[in-house]
Structures are given as structure tokens and as C-alpha cells.
């Protein structure tokens, strides 16, 4: 099993390298989609079916959003010449980061033996205390419902931000063409 995890992680690293280095933006976006589906498969193997489902669906929607943001534009002019200083700096930080993690993870508990101090209580008591047999649902909606409330607030803020950035109304008075072309309902 642990070999499958390694193979999937190598697949994801190669996918992200393709996504970062390719010239064609559409293939970059699709490569990111491949990385996301790899993450979702890994979640499934790691015993987390809840987030595997969520990751697949979120991946579909984010692919649509990224393709929407990419395809209309003229992307040929960008990335023609390589900015050598930024590339060297980026590679340096990449190497530094990996070295630092190798040093830092030597103190972490080994893979496959989690600490699970609080989680033991959640696992043992979820069906008796909350009535939910899916322990993850019990944790996000009963033990830690505050987290979900905060998540709802963050999502609300990002919707508000996207609308404020994208709106056309308010900058100039609406005329007939706006309603015809963009489907903006005047009120």
C-alpha cells in the first residue's frame, strides 16, 4: 500500500511540473486537474472517503473556473523570455524548503502512527453522543460546529469579494446594451 502512495505522489509532482512549465495554458490547467484527481485518489486510499468525494467535485468546478479564466485571453506573448533571477531564486527556495522539511520531519511521529489524543474520544463517543455514525459529520457539525460557522463566513466573504470585483453596475449608468448583452438585470 505504501508503494502506491509513493507512486501517486510522484505522479502528482510530475503533473505539477508539467502544469508549471508548459507553454500552453489550457494544458497547464488540465495538468492541475490531473494533480487534483491524484490528490482525491490518495485521499480515498488514506481512509478518507468524505474528502475524496468533496475533492473530486471541487476539482471539476475549479477546472471550469480556471478554463473560463484562461481560454479567452491571448497567452502567447507571456513566458517568451525567461527571467533568470526569479528562476534561480525560486529554485533556491525550492531546495531550501525541501532541506528544511527533511530536517524538521525527523522529529515528527512516523508515518502510520498518529498521536490521536482528542480523536480517540471522538471515535469512541460519536455515535453515542451525537448519534451520527459518520464520525466526520459528527465532528464538523456537532463537536466543532464553530469551525463550520467560520467556514461559512469565509465563503460568504469570498463571494462578496468576487462580486465587488466583477460587477459593472455602479460604475456607469446602465443602458439597453448592458441588459441585452450581459444579461444584467437592471434591478
Amino acid at each position: 500500500m505504501i508503494a502506491i502512495f509513493h507512486v501517486l505522489l510522484f505522479f502528482m509532482i510530475i503533473g505539477s511540473a508539467v502544469a508549471i512549465e508548459t507553454k500552453n495554458m489550457l494544458s497547464a490547467v488540465i495538468a492541475v486537474g490531473a494533480v487534483g484527481f491524484g490528490v482525491s485518489l490518495l485521499f480515498l486510499f488514506l481512509g478518507a472517503p468524505d474528502i475524496a468525494i468533496t475533492q473530486v467535485i471541487v476539482e471539476i468546478l475549479s477546472l471550469i473556473i480556471l478554463i473560463r479564466a484562461t481560454t479567452f485571453a491571448d497567452n502567447r506573448a507571456v513566458e517568451r523570455k525567461i527571467d533568470s533571477f526569479a528562476t534561480i531564486t525560486g529554485l533556491f527556495f525550492l531546495g531550501f524548503f525541501v532541506m528544511a522539511t527533511v530536517w524538521a520531519f525527523s522529529d515528527l511521529t512516523p508515518f502510520g502512527e498518529p498521536l490521536m489524543v482528542v480523536s480517540q474520544r471522538y471515535l469512541a463517543g460519536s455515535s453515542a453522543e451525537t448519534g451520527a455514525v459518520n464520525v466526520v459529520a459528527g465532528v464538523i457539525l456537532d463537536y466543532r460546529a464553530y469551525d463550520t460557522l467560520g467556514e461559512a463566513m469565509v465563503l460568504f466573504t469570498s463571494v462578496l469579494g468576487a462580486f465587488v470585483i466583477l460587477r459593472r453596475r455602479g460604475k456607469k449608468p446602465l443602458d439597453e446594451a448592458d441588459t441585452e448583452q450581459f444579461g444584467i438585470i437592471s434591478d
Binding site: 509513493h6 509532482i13 526569479a86 525560486g90 529554485l91 525527523s106 508515518f111
Partner: peptide, 23 residues
């Protein structure tokens, strides 16, 4: 810890794209 390190290499790819790419 090799899985952790591979995962952090994936994160390093993200950091590299954030620093080095102009698009």
C-alpha cells in the same frame, strides 16, 4: 518520513511557481 518529504516537494513546486513565473 519519505512520504512527508515528497509531499513537501509538491508544495515546493507551488512555491517555485509563485516566485519564478510571471503569468
Amino acid at each position: 518520513t519519505s512520504l512527508y518529504i515528497l509531499d513537501m516537494a509538491l508544495m515546493g513546486m507551488g512555491v517555485y511557481a509563485l516566485i519564478a513565473k510571471r503569468h
